[in-house]
Simulated scan of single mutants.
Amino acid sequence: MIHFVLHDAKDTVAVVVVEGVKAGMELKGWIMDEDKFVNVQAKQDIPIGHKVALANLNTGDTVFKYGVDIGRVVAPIKAGEHAHVHNVKTKRW
């Protein structure tokens, strides 16, 4: 089963595409551009449509989703944690 998708291997977050992701689950992700798979263990419950961090990210790091810079980290995020508005902000303002 695929739990999350990402377009580019350099992405630091990916979109959860199934319901019921719970802390402790081993998640399988599909890198669309390369037709390859990656794994990460969920550290938190993550709702469908939200982002999971694929790597440890520090405050100030750039977040990449679908191969695009989508913002910066405002609070540290560990691989497998929920990446959302509480720890990622746009660089526009």
Rank of each mutant, 00 (worst) to 15 (best):
V38Q: 03
D61C: 15
D35W: 00
V5L: 12
K51Q: 03
K43G: 08
E81N: 10
Q44P: 00
K28M: 12
H84T: 07
K51W: 05
K65G: 12
F37K: 06
I2Y: 09
I70G: 03
P76C: 06
A23P: 00
M32S: 07
V74D: 04
K22I: 03
V88M: 08
V38A: 09
G60I: 09
L57E: 02
G80M: 13
K36L: 11
V17R: 01
A9P: 15
V52C: 13
V40K: 07
V74K: 11
A83F: 04
H82A: 07
H3G: 05
F64N: 14
R72K: 15
F37A: 00
T90C: 05
K22P: 01
W93M: 13
N87M: 11
V74H: 04
Q44D: 13
N58V: 09
D8K: 13
K10M: 11
N39I: 07
V63G: 09
T90F: 07
L6A: 13
V74W: 04
Y66M: 11
H86P: 05
G60T: 08
N87D: 02
K36Y: 04
E34W: 00
M25S: 11
V73F: 09
G49Q: 02
V16N: 06
Y66W: 13
V38E: 06
N56P: 15
V88N: 02
N58S: 14
Q41P: 02
A83K: 03
G67I: 12
V73L: 12
G60E: 05
V40D: 04
H86F: 11
I31H: 01
N56R: 05
G49R: 01
A14Q: 06
H50D: 03
W30C: 12
P47T: 01
D45S: 08
I48T: 09
G20V: 00
D8Y: 07
V63T: 15
L57K: 04
K36C: 06
E26D: 12
N87H: 06
